[in-house]
Design a protein around this nucleic acid. Structure first.
Length: 486
RNA sequence: GGCGCAUUCGUCUAGUGGACUAGGAUACCUGGUUCUCAUCCAGGAGAUCGCGGGUUCGAAUCCCGCAUGCGCUACCA
């Protein structure tokens, strides 16, 4: 029976904090590739660094992925046939494989202490020599081992790297990449506390989980020969394909960090970004559709994605373009949905959003939708729709309200608006245009003062619709209040 | 230091030997629509394709060297 190889990819974060922008991009590309190929997407937790990992971080990562709209076929919360999907729960498996390597002579115990190694490394650096492990323990006799054991020395297991030959592979993104084996260290695969290191655990798991494609950041490219060598030493022939994604950098070209602003996915959520916009933006960081189109939903990305169209040079994360894209998504979002999203944003400083009546809130959202770039801007932009008193912007007052005709105008407006039964936008507009004609002045001289009187500002949505939404009572009260300031 | 990867407008990118006087997007500027802002529309400026050699009738595209940036070089992942 010959069926096309079923694609299986994994995202394998180590839970040290929130889901990082770079990690999210890696997860996304794995997800898009898997879904595009009709394959499986697996989430695996690489928690072999006891110092840095936390359980909360696992939840943070899961939350981040869910928020971005990704789901996985195997992994935490969903299980699967190749579990467990958390490395610390797979310790027995690693020991078994380490033993195999030991038996084959492809690995050996090393009794050197971290202090000794550290000193040697420093010395080598000082002499400008490559700081490689000197393989002192590689040729230990059984007797010597016994002696060390007797002394109760702690030991690690090291991989016996071949010192001849070359290990090369064809990266799906970078092309042919080769490394001389002799340059590789006899790296540790099992730490003295019995926990495997990354390079070893990843190989064992990728094999056992039938991973067909390893898609990860290109900071892992030099780990690849070590992993390939291990597959070979274990006698495994299911070496996956590799695809190394270009890095995402900060504005100054260095690794993306706190200095460059928000770096975790969840921060973007609280900053008022829509997950679809982040997905879309992240997809375009490294991948290009080959057409001039830029806006793609997750489903569309799945359909269009291919590793062949992933570029190979690092990309600088550009918050401005993300913001523009977020605005595009906000404008395209259904009004009900958008209103709910705004309600979901943490508006701690603006409780009036939460207590507002839904239909009213919705009508305000409708007026501001095309102006919003992020959800979090909403409260500040629309305060005057919800609060009793208006705060007058100083510049607006100075520019508009100090004109001679204003008090008289407002009085007249108050009168005319009072006579309308309900403030329908088109009625208000007609009345005001007529008034301007009557007074023989430009319409803007009539419109702007009312805008400042009811909103306190010079900029905002269509005046007439604003007045309609605010309602007659509020509008009249605000004109009255404003009049008292003269 | 060694090894690896990368290098097209400020930024994201298209480009796989001739259609490139290098296309799009964003940001910026100008004009139009409009009650302001925003949206939308039209236009502008912005890249000697990192540098130097080569291959070729012809190179952003292929090869070599250099420079620069980033990554790895851990009992981190």
């Amino acid at each position: 029976m010959t069926t096309a190889k079923h694609v299986r990819v994994r995202f394998a974060p180590s839970p040290t904090g929130h889901l990082h922008i770079g990690g999210a991009r890696t997860a996304l590309f794995n997800y898009l590739f898997a879904r595009n190929e009709g394959g499986s997407f697996i989430l695996r937790i690489e928690d072999t660094d006891r110092e840095r990992n936390t359980v909360e971080a696992v939840h943070h990562i899961i939350d981040g992925m869910k928020w971005l709209g990704m789901d996985w076929d195997e992994g935490p919360e969903v299980g699967g046939d190749h579990g467990p999907y958390t490395q610390l729960e797979r310790l027995d498996i690693y020991h078994q494989y380490a033993q195999t390597l030991l038996d084959k002579g492809s690995a050996y115990y090393c009794y050197c202490t971290p202090e000794e190694l550290d000193e040697k490394r420093k010395l080598a650096m000082k002499r400008h020599l490559p700081p490689k492990y000197d393989r002192r323990c590689r040729s230990l006799s059984d007797g010597e081992c016994k002696t060390f054991e007797g002394e109760g020395k702690r030991k690690v297991i090291r991989f016996a790297t071949p010192d001849r030959g070359e290990t090369s592979f064809t990266d799906l993104i970078k092309g042919r990449v080769g490394f001389k084996n002799g340059l590789l260290d006899d790296f540790v695969i099992m730490k003295s506390d019995g926990i495997p290191t990354y390079n070893f655990a990843a190989v064992v798991d990728d094999h056992l989980m039938n991973i067909t494609h390893v898609i990860r950041g290109d900071d892992h490219i030099s780990n690849t020969p070590r992993q390939i060598l291990m597959f070979k030493a274990l006698g495994l022939d299911d070496i996956p394909e590799f695809a190394h994604l270009p890095m995402i950098l900060g504005s100054d070209g260095s690794r993306l960090s706190k200095r460059h602003g928000a770096t975790s996915v969840i921060e973007y959520k609280s900053l008022g970004y829509l997950p679809e916009a982040l997905d879309n933006y992240l997809a375009l960081l490294g991948w290009a559709p080959g057409t001039e189109r830029e806006i793609f939903s997750l489903e569309e990305l799945v359909k269009e994605f291919s590793l062949g169209r992933v570029g190979s040079s690092a990309a600088i994360f550009n918050p401005e373009k993300l913001e523009w894209m977020n605005g595009e998504y906000i404008r395209a979002t259904d009004l009900d949905v958008l209103t709910k999203e705004i309600l979901d944003v943490d508006s701690g400083e603006a409780p009036f959003i939460k207590t507002a009546e839904f239909e009213y809130l919705k009508s305000v959202v409708a007026l501001e939708q095309e102006r919003l770039k992020t959800l979090t801007e909403f409260p500040e932009m629309t305060k005057f729709f919800f609060e009793e008193d208006v705060e007058y912007d100083q510049a607006a007052w100075d520019k508009i309200m100090t004109q001679e005709h204003v008090p008289g105008l407002l009085n007249g407006l108050k009168d005319k608006l009072g006579k309308l039964t309900a403030l329908k936008a088109e009625d208000v507009e007609k009345m005001m245009r007529d008034l301007a004609a009557e007074m023989g002045i430009k319409t803007s001289l009539v419109f702007h003062p009312l805008r400042v009187a009811v909103s306190g500002r010079m900029v905002g949505p269509s005046l007439f619709h604003m007045v309609e939404v605010l309602g007659k009572d509020r509008v009249l009260k605000r004109i009255t209040d404003t009049l008292q300031l003269f």
